[in-house]
Simulated scan of single mutants.
Amino acid sequence: MDAVDVPWGGVWSQPDAVATLRSAASDPAALSHAWLITGPPGSGRSNLAYAFAAALIADEGDEAAMRQVLAGTHPDLTALRTEQVVIRIDEARRLVERAYFAPSVGRYRVIVVEDADRMVERTSNVLLKALEEPPERTVWVLCAPSDADLLPTIRSRVRTLRLREPELADVARLIAERTGVDAALAEQSARHAQRHIGMAQRLATDAATRERRDGTLRAVLAVRGVGDAVDVAARVVQSATDDAKALTAERDEAERASLLHTVGVPEGGPIPPAVRAQVNALEEEQKRRATRSLRDGIDRALTDLQSMFRDVVMLQFGRDTDLVNAELAPQLHALADAWPPARTLIVLDHLAETRRNLEQNVAPALALESLLITVATGRTP
């Protein structure tokens, strides 16, 4: 990568946003003290946030410092990317404390919050004072899918930068370049991921993920009654649980081994009472991360179902192009003919409600059972 491409070379398909932030980083008069970067999942919010942080912290041309920021190791960068259901209030308080430190070696101190939409109201309120009375030479960069995901009091104190959704063909081309898969698989993965770059890359490179997705959609299409609904709901939850375990198990074990090595406990040896509290704290953190991973997996399945029933509505209104799930076209045509559009819209409404309920900690199996009963009957339980 040429020096001119650092730090913006990792930002893809957002030229207008890059131009805005590049200008702000080089002109103090155009720099707001707090920014909110919004865009659909996979649009590159976090990549852009760290590129902006690098441009703010490092002097122009200081490629080494920029790369240090991009790697997350620069002392003037504080970043929060939660892997839990919500951002905890103690985490927010630590961010605010760091915000009042002067930059140690860089031009600015930058606080990046990748998942600002995961703050509950009382946690958001912790940030308000820092946003209302910004410390000198500190810049906040929040990331969220939409500005509607944050409290109005937060939104009024930030400058919002909205990212555009990338074109399907552009995502497919990027996936083919990154992974080396053929053009047809890259296009299918980009389409099934609904242009989410990270998910498209996973679909392109992991046959098991593709099979799970296809199996979930076909199972839901086959639901005919309450018994089917209960069975398929259990299978979707189990599939998401297995996927979450596969993603976290190796990391959990490595973290535990690293902690025990650090405190001098030999492999397989007993854990001294003095160390047990640290091990228990790590296990609790891992449990919270697993819960988030499970909920993300179920939400991904619901997103896939939304795409399928969106395809059905498209067919019912005479549009048979641009289907997300073109491979299921015969089944989708049959469903479009069998159902009135009103029934499909009821299912889509219940899908959106189910996603909201899961964010409120409703039991996943019960939420999915209710949804699939609506699929089977056309009525909300």
Rank of each mutant, 00 (worst) to 15 (best):
A301W: 01
S307R: 08
G297C: 09
A281S: 12
L323C: 06
R276Y: 09
P272R: 09
A277P: 07
E283M: 08
I271T: 13
R256A: 10
D320Y: 05
T303A: 12
A290V: 10
F317N: 11
L332W: 05
L323H: 04
L259F: 06
I346D: 01
F317W: 11
L348Q: 01
G268R: 06
L294M: 05
G318I: 01
L259M: 13
L260N: 10
M314W: 12
P270H: 10
R256P: 13
R343F: 03
E255A: 10
L351Q: 02
D311F: 03
A336T: 05
R343M: 06
R289L: 09
E284Y: 07
E285C: 09
A257E: 15
L332H: 03
R256H: 13
Q286K: 07
H350E: 15
L345S: 03
L294Y: 07
A274S: 10
L335M: 13
Q316G: 04
P270R: 03
L259Q: 02
H333W: 09
A342G: 10
T291C: 12
A329K: 15
R288T: 04
V275A: 02
I346F: 02
L294E: 06
P266V: 02
F317H: 11
V347S: 02
D299M: 14
D320C: 08
E327C: 11
R276V: 13
W339I: 01
G297D: 06
L345V: 14
H350D: 10
I346Q: 05
V324K: 04
A290F: 15
G297W: 01
T303K: 04
F317E: 05
D322I: 10
A274V: 12
T321D: 13
F317K: 03
T303H: 08
R300I: 06
T344E: 00
L302Y: 02
A338K: 11
Q331H: 12
T291S: 12
Q316V: 04
Q306M: 11
V313R: 01
R310S: 08
R343P: 00
M314D: 03
K287H: 14
V324W: 03
D299S: 14
L294Q: 07
L315A: 01
K287A: 09
V279S: 05
E327L: 11
